[in-house]
């Protein structure tokens, strides 16, 4: 017996890496405004939305940086290794634009010259190497400027479509920064797959589920969430390192946006912190002090 050809569903492998989209900052702004709604932190979230708007404008104006993957690149290290200065050259031009957007929103930040001094703190935050939070609006705006440049860089890279070996998955394979959390996709093809999202360039890279991304202890993790609120956000906590980072589930909310949803769910951080877990994921807009 012979049959007509059939159209069959495919389970093509999902890629190891995903580039950030070109409307990343606009989506963040929009998500922040949605989350602001009637939340107690509405003012704050709305101001950050203005900052994201300014990031999008700067991103659109920046254009392709023209930096490409070196031939035969094997992802053994971050793509940016040794090229930071070249990549970052554009940030001083962007900073004043973001600063003036903030000024218009009533947030005073330092001028470009003084902002330079904040670079080490921002770098340390992104590398996850120091007490991982920024302390002043100036630092946050500087980080925002760097985000624009690095996202543009990541956006222009040809990332492989298949599964590549990522030697160090704890840090961004593109820029080497620490992830701010992970998104878990919904839908056909990559439903259930977890991608960590870079806190700087928003590159996403696949990381297996049910494993602590902070200490790589395999097998069992706890999910802590808030009852009857923020169903898409869970803190993935580990009994071994007592650390946690947040997971954002698309199947609970299709437009969940890690950076924005993180800021809107600080209540979860407070409650999880009270259980004795420490946060291991930076967010440049989360100021302390």
């Amino acid at each position: 017996m012979q049959f007509p050809p059939q159209s069959l569903p495919s389970a093509d492998d999902y890629p190891s890496l995903l580039r950030p989209g070109t409307s990343l900052f606009a989506r963040r702004a929009s998500r922040l405004r949605t989350l602001a709604g009637s939340a107690p932190a509405a003012d704050w979230l709305n101001r950050l939305a203005l900052l994201c708007d300014a990031q999008q404008t700067a991103f659109d104006a920046l254009g392709d940086l023209g930096l490409r993957l070196p031939a035969g690149f094997a992802w053994q290290q971050a793509v940016s290794a040794g090229r930071e200065a070249e990549i970052e050259a554009a940030w001083p031009a962007i900073y004043p634009q973001l600063a003036s957007a903030m000024a218009a929103a009533g947030v005073a930040v330092a001028d470009l010259g003084s902002a330079q001094a904040s670079l080490p703190a921002v770098r340390a935050l992104l590398a996850g190497e120091a007490e991982a939070a920024l302390q002043s609006p100036t630092e946050a705006v500087l980080a925002a400027a760097l985000q624009v440049v690095w996202t543009r860089f990541a956006q222009g890279l040809d990332v492989p479509t298949g599964k590549v070996l990522l030697a160090e998955r704890g840090h961004c394979p593109c820029c080497g920064s620490a992830p701010l959390g992970s998104i878990v996709f919904a839908g056909q093809g990559r439903g259930g797959a977890r991608y960590q999202e870079c806190s700087l360039c928003a590159t996403r890279w696949n990381a297996v589920r049910a494993r602590c991304t902070l200490c790589d202890d395999p097998g069992v993790v706890a999910y802590l969430g808030i009852e009857d609120a923020f169903p898409a956000v869970r803190a993935e906590a580990c009994e071994h390192c007592k650390g946690y980072s947040k997971l954002y589930f698309q199947d609970k909310d299709l437009v969940v946006e890690p950076l924005a949803d993180d800021l809107a769910t600080l209540a979860l951080d407070v409650l999880v912190g009270e259980q004795g877990y420490a946060r291991g994921a930076p967010n440049p807009f989360l100021l302390t002090g």
Binding site: M1, Q2, F3, P5, Q6, L8, P9, S10, A11, D12
Partner: peptide, 29 residues
Amino acid sequence: IEAKKNRKAKLVVVDPRFNRTASVADFYA
């Protein structure tokens, strides 16, 4: 199914019953 879809592989089934595998086969005997 992936082989059929991506490599245009053929699926041939030989069985006493026209079973569920046969139902997506290119040829059954």
